[in-house]
Protein backbone atom coordinates (compact mmCIF):
# COMPACT_ATOMS: atom_id res chain seq x y z
CA UNK A 1 0.00 0.00 0.00
CA UNK A 2 1.02 3.60 -0.50
CA UNK A 3 0.97 5.66 2.65
CA UNK A 4 2.29 9.13 3.33
CA UNK A 5 5.41 7.45 4.65
CA UNK A 6 6.09 5.37 1.58
CA UNK A 7 6.06 6.09 -2.11
CA UNK A 8 5.18 4.23 -5.24
CA UNK A 9 7.76 1.51 -5.54
CA UNK A 10 7.88 1.32 -9.29
CA UNK A 11 6.33 3.72 -11.76
CA UNK A 12 6.80 1.51 -14.75
CA UNK A 13 4.65 -1.48 -13.81
CA UNK A 14 1.77 -2.30 -16.11
CA UNK A 15 -1.54 -1.82 -14.27
CA UNK A 16 -2.92 -5.11 -15.54
CA UNK A 17 -2.44 -8.79 -14.91
CA UNK A 18 -3.91 -12.06 -13.72
CA UNK A 19 -4.47 -12.54 -10.01
CA UNK A 20 -4.74 -15.73 -8.07
CA UNK A 21 -7.91 -16.04 -5.94
CA UNK A 22 -6.94 -16.90 -2.37
CA UNK A 23 -10.37 -16.64 -0.81
CA UNK A 24 -13.92 -15.73 -1.84
CA UNK A 25 -16.46 -15.76 0.98
CA UNK A 26 -19.94 -14.55 1.81
CA UNK A 27 -19.87 -11.98 4.60
CA UNK A 28 -23.54 -10.95 4.63
CA UNK A 29 -26.81 -11.87 2.94
CA UNK A 30 -25.71 -10.85 -0.58
CA UNK A 31 -22.25 -9.42 0.08
CA UNK A 32 -18.97 -11.19 -0.62
CA UNK A 33 -15.31 -10.53 0.04
CA UNK A 34 -12.67 -11.73 -2.42
CA UNK A 35 -8.94 -11.90 -1.70
CA UNK A 36 -6.73 -11.86 -4.77
CA UNK A 37 -2.99 -12.37 -4.90
CA UNK A 38 -1.49 -9.65 -7.11
CA UNK A 39 1.66 -8.06 -5.66
CA UNK A 40 1.68 -5.16 -8.15
CA UNK A 41 -1.71 -4.03 -6.90
CA UNK A 42 -0.98 -4.79 -3.25
CA UNK A 43 2.24 -2.76 -3.18
CA UNK A 44 1.29 0.09 -5.50
CA UNK A 45 -2.28 0.96 -4.59
CA UNK A 46 -3.75 3.67 -2.46
CA UNK A 47 -7.13 3.77 -0.65
CA UNK A 48 -9.81 5.03 -3.04
CA UNK A 49 -8.25 3.39 -6.09
CA UNK A 50 -10.04 0.55 -7.83
CA UNK A 51 -9.52 -2.56 -9.93
CA UNK A 52 -11.54 -3.58 -12.96
CA UNK A 53 -12.21 -7.30 -13.23
CA UNK A 54 -12.94 -9.41 -16.27
CA UNK A 55 -16.06 -11.49 -15.69
CA UNK A 56 -15.89 -14.45 -18.02
CA UNK A 57 -17.56 -13.70 -21.35
CA UNK A 58 -19.21 -10.42 -20.35
CA UNK A 59 -18.31 -7.62 -22.74
CA UNK A 60 -17.41 -5.05 -20.08
CA UNK A 61 -15.33 -5.39 -16.94
CA UNK A 62 -16.66 -4.73 -13.45
CA UNK A 63 -14.97 -2.11 -11.24
CA UNK A 64 -14.44 -2.54 -7.48
CA UNK A 65 -12.76 -0.35 -4.88
CA UNK A 66 -9.79 -1.97 -3.25
CA UNK A 67 -11.03 -2.70 0.27
CA UNK A 68 -7.70 -3.69 1.75
CA UNK A 69 -4.23 -4.99 1.01
CA UNK A 70 -2.27 -7.56 2.92
CA UNK A 71 1.12 -8.99 1.99
CA UNK A 72 0.89 -9.85 -1.71
CA UNK A 73 -2.89 -9.66 -1.84
CA UNK A 74 -5.64 -7.12 -2.28
CA UNK A 75 -9.26 -7.49 -1.28
CA UNK A 76 -12.58 -6.32 -2.69
CA UNK A 77 -16.09 -6.35 -1.25
CA UNK A 78 -18.96 -6.84 -3.68
CA UNK A 79 -22.70 -7.07 -3.61
CA UNK A 80 -24.60 -9.45 -5.89
CA UNK A 81 -26.15 -7.21 -8.50
CA UNK A 82 -26.23 -9.10 -11.78
CA UNK A 83 -24.39 -11.38 -14.15
CA UNK A 84 -20.91 -10.07 -13.34
CA UNK A 85 -21.10 -10.42 -9.58
CA UNK A 86 -23.00 -13.73 -9.92
CA UNK A 87 -20.09 -15.07 -11.92
CA UNK A 88 -17.62 -13.75 -9.35
CA UNK A 89 -19.46 -15.30 -6.40
CA UNK A 90 -19.01 -18.70 -8.05
CA UNK A 91 -15.23 -18.41 -8.26
CA UNK A 92 -13.21 -20.54 -5.89
CA UNK A 93 -9.83 -20.26 -4.22
CA UNK A 94 -7.20 -21.47 -6.66
CA UNK A 95 -8.88 -19.99 -9.72
CA UNK A 96 -7.60 -16.81 -11.31
CA UNK A 97 -9.09 -13.52 -12.43
CA UNK A 98 -7.91 -10.95 -14.96
CA UNK A 99 -7.62 -7.43 -13.57
CA UNK A 100 -6.75 -3.89 -14.57
CA UNK A 101 -5.46 -1.79 -11.73
CA UNK A 102 -4.80 -0.04 -9.54
CA UNK A 103 -6.81 2.57 -11.46
CA UNK A 104 -7.93 6.10 -10.63
CA UNK A 105 -6.77 8.49 -7.94
CA UNK A 106 -7.02 7.67 -4.27
CA UNK A 107 -7.88 9.75 -1.23
CA UNK A 108 -5.78 12.66 -0.04
CA UNK A 109 -4.36 11.14 3.12
CA UNK A 110 -3.30 14.34 4.83
CA UNK A 111 -6.12 14.53 7.44
CA UNK A 112 -5.09 15.18 11.03
CA UNK A 113 -8.26 13.72 12.48
CA UNK A 114 -10.69 11.91 10.21
CA UNK A 115 -14.31 10.83 10.11
CA UNK A 116 -15.14 8.08 7.66
CA UNK A 117 -18.71 7.69 6.43
CA UNK A 118 -19.63 4.64 4.40
CA UNK A 119 -22.90 3.07 3.34
CA UNK A 120 -23.42 -0.43 2.01
CA UNK A 121 -20.52 -1.82 0.00
CA UNK A 122 -19.36 1.80 -0.13
CA UNK A 123 -17.48 1.05 3.06
CA UNK A 124 -14.93 -0.87 0.97
CA UNK A 125 -12.35 1.86 0.25
CA UNK A 126 -12.79 3.23 3.77
CA UNK A 127 -11.66 -0.04 5.31
CA UNK A 128 -8.42 0.27 3.37
CA UNK A 129 -8.23 3.90 4.49
CA UNK A 130 -8.46 2.86 8.17
CA UNK A 131 -5.40 0.63 7.64
CA UNK A 132 -3.39 3.54 6.28
CA UNK A 133 -4.53 5.87 9.05
CA UNK A 134 -3.49 3.29 11.65
CA UNK A 135 -0.10 3.04 9.97
CA UNK A 136 0.25 6.83 9.79
CA UNK A 137 -1.04 7.37 13.36
CA UNK A 138 -3.95 9.50 12.18
CA UNK A 139 -6.86 9.32 14.65
CA UNK A 140 -10.19 8.43 13.05
CA UNK A 141 -13.69 7.17 13.67
CA UNK A 142 -16.03 5.51 11.23
CA UNK A 143 -19.76 5.28 10.59
CA UNK A 144 -20.89 2.33 8.49
CA UNK A 145 -24.50 2.19 7.36
CA UNK A 146 -26.34 -0.89 6.15
CA UNK A 147 -29.98 -1.82 5.67
CA UNK A 148 -29.71 -4.60 8.21
CA UNK A 149 -27.11 -6.25 10.39
CA UNK A 150 -23.76 -7.12 8.83
CA UNK A 151 -21.15 -9.03 10.70
CA UNK A 152 -18.68 -6.22 10.82
CA UNK A 153 -16.22 -8.32 12.85
CA UNK A 154 -15.62 -10.21 9.67
CA UNK A 155 -14.22 -7.01 8.17
CA UNK A 156 -12.26 -6.11 11.31
CA UNK A 157 -12.87 -2.36 11.04
CA UNK A 158 -11.59 -0.53 14.10
CA UNK A 159 -13.36 2.47 15.64
CA UNK A 160 -16.55 1.74 13.74
CA UNK A 161 -20.19 2.38 14.61
CA UNK A 162 -22.60 0.19 12.70
CA UNK A 163 -25.84 1.97 11.76
CA UNK A 164 -28.74 -0.10 10.42
CA UNK A 165 -32.02 1.06 8.97
CA UNK A 166 -33.95 -1.84 10.50
CA UNK A 167 -32.39 -1.33 13.92
CA UNK A 168 -30.65 -4.68 14.09
CA UNK A 169 -27.57 -2.91 15.47
CA UNK A 170 -27.42 -0.52 18.41
CA UNK A 171 -27.57 2.57 16.19
CA UNK A 172 -30.84 2.68 14.24
CA UNK A 173 -31.46 4.98 11.31
CA UNK A 174 -29.57 6.29 8.32
CA UNK A 175 -25.83 6.72 8.49
CA UNK A 176 -26.15 10.45 7.80
CA UNK A 177 -28.33 10.87 10.93
CA UNK A 178 -25.22 10.29 13.05
CA UNK A 179 -22.71 12.55 11.30
CA UNK A 180 -23.40 15.73 13.28
CA UNK A 181 -23.06 13.91 16.59
CA UNK A 182 -19.78 12.33 15.47
CA UNK A 183 -18.43 15.68 14.34
CA UNK A 184 -19.31 17.15 17.72
CA UNK A 185 -17.62 14.30 19.60
CA UNK A 186 -14.52 13.78 17.52
CA UNK A 187 -13.86 17.16 15.80
CA UNK A 188 -12.52 15.80 12.49
CA UNK A 189 -10.75 18.13 10.07
CA UNK A 190 -11.78 15.97 7.10
CA UNK A 191 -14.61 13.60 6.26
CA UNK A 192 -14.08 10.72 3.84
CA UNK A 193 -17.22 9.24 2.35
CA UNK A 194 -18.27 6.52 -0.03
CA UNK A 195 -21.69 5.09 -0.79
CA UNK A 196 -24.91 5.92 -2.65
CA UNK A 197 -25.24 9.37 -4.23
CA UNK A 198 -27.83 10.55 -1.70
CA UNK A 199 -25.58 9.64 1.27
CA UNK A 200 -22.62 11.52 -0.24
CA UNK A 201 -24.72 14.54 -1.09
CA UNK A 202 -26.08 14.74 2.46
CA UNK A 203 -22.66 14.14 4.02
CA UNK A 204 -21.11 16.97 2.01
CA UNK A 205 -23.99 19.28 2.90
CA UNK A 206 -23.53 18.64 6.64
CA UNK A 207 -19.76 18.99 6.35
CA UNK A 208 -20.08 22.27 4.44
CA UNK A 209 -22.22 23.81 7.19
CA UNK A 210 -19.50 22.87 9.69
CA UNK A 211 -16.71 24.00 7.33
CA UNK A 212 -15.09 20.59 7.22
CA UNK A 213 -13.35 19.37 4.03
CA UNK A 214 -14.73 16.26 2.39
CA UNK A 215 -13.31 13.64 0.10
CA UNK A 216 -15.94 11.55 -1.65
CA UNK A 217 -15.41 8.42 -3.74
CA UNK A 218 -17.98 8.47 -6.55
CA UNK A 219 -19.46 5.82 -8.77
CA UNK A 220 -20.74 6.21 -12.33
CA UNK A 221 -21.07 3.67 -15.15
CA UNK A 222 -18.14 3.42 -17.54
CA UNK A 223 -16.95 1.01 -20.18
CA UNK A 224 -13.17 1.39 -19.90
CA UNK A 225 -11.95 2.55 -16.46
CA UNK A 226 -8.98 4.34 -18.02
CA UNK A 227 -10.48 7.64 -19.14
CA UNK A 228 -11.36 7.13 -22.79
CA UNK A 229 -14.98 6.03 -23.13
CA UNK A 230 -16.32 9.23 -21.53
CA UNK A 231 -19.20 7.29 -20.03
CA UNK A 232 -18.63 8.28 -16.39
CA UNK A 233 -18.75 12.05 -16.65
CA UNK A 234 -19.81 14.17 -13.68
CA UNK A 235 -19.89 17.94 -13.37
CA UNK A 236 -17.42 19.73 -11.11
CA UNK A 237 -16.83 23.40 -10.26
CA UNK A 238 -13.38 24.45 -11.41
CA UNK A 239 -12.22 28.10 -11.53
CA UNK A 240 -15.81 29.39 -11.33
CA UNK A 241 -16.82 27.20 -14.24
CA UNK A 242 -18.72 23.94 -14.41
CA UNK A 243 -16.58 21.37 -16.21
CA UNK A 244 -16.85 17.66 -17.00
CA UNK A 245 -14.67 15.20 -15.10
CA UNK A 246 -14.25 11.48 -15.64
CA UNK A 247 -15.00 9.50 -12.48
CA UNK A 248 -12.61 6.71 -13.50
CA UNK A 249 -9.59 8.79 -14.43
CA UNK A 250 -9.95 12.20 -12.74
CA UNK A 251 -11.57 10.51 -9.70
CA UNK A 252 -13.07 8.37 -8.35
CA UNK A 253 -12.21 10.58 -5.36
CA UNK A 254 -13.28 14.22 -5.58
CA UNK A 255 -13.38 17.06 -3.10
CA UNK A 256 -17.02 17.02 -2.00
CA UNK A 257 -17.50 20.77 -2.20
CA UNK A 258 -16.42 20.85 -5.88
CA UNK A 259 -19.02 18.34 -7.07
CA UNK A 260 -22.19 19.66 -8.72
CA UNK A 261 -24.72 17.59 -6.76
Amino acid sequence: MITDKTHRANNTIKPAGTGHIIDNKKIAHDIYQMTIEAPDVAYNSKPGQFVSLLCSKLVLRRPFSISNVKDNCFQIIYKLKGEGTDYMSGLKAGQSIDYLGPLGNGFDLSAKRALLVGAGVGIAPLIYLTEVFKYNDVPFTMLAGFQSFVDIKELAIPECTLVTEDGSSTAKGRVTDFIEEKILNTRPDRIYACGPHVVLQKTVKIANTQKIDTEVALEEKFACGIGVCMGCIIEVYENDEIVNKRVCKDGPVFKGETVVW
Binding site: V59, K221, C229, C232, I233, I234
Partner: peptide, 13 residues
Protein backbone atom coordinates in the same frame (compact mmCIF):
# COMPACT_ATOMS: atom_id res chain seq x y z
CA UNK B 1 -25.99 11.15 -18.03
CA UNK B 2 -26.93 8.41 -18.69
CA UNK B 3 -24.41 7.85 -21.45
CA UNK B 4 -23.81 4.12 -21.41
CA UNK B 5 -25.53 0.81 -21.05
CA UNK B 6 -24.07 -2.64 -21.33
CA UNK B 7 -26.03 -4.97 -23.56
CA UNK B 8 -25.88 -8.68 -23.93
CA UNK B 9 -22.78 -8.94 -26.13
CA UNK B 10 -22.28 -5.25 -26.66
CA UNK B 11 -23.01 -1.79 -25.40
CA UNK B 12 -24.91 1.34 -26.29
CA UNK B 13 -23.42 4.80 -25.93
Amino acid sequence: QPRLKELRNGMIN
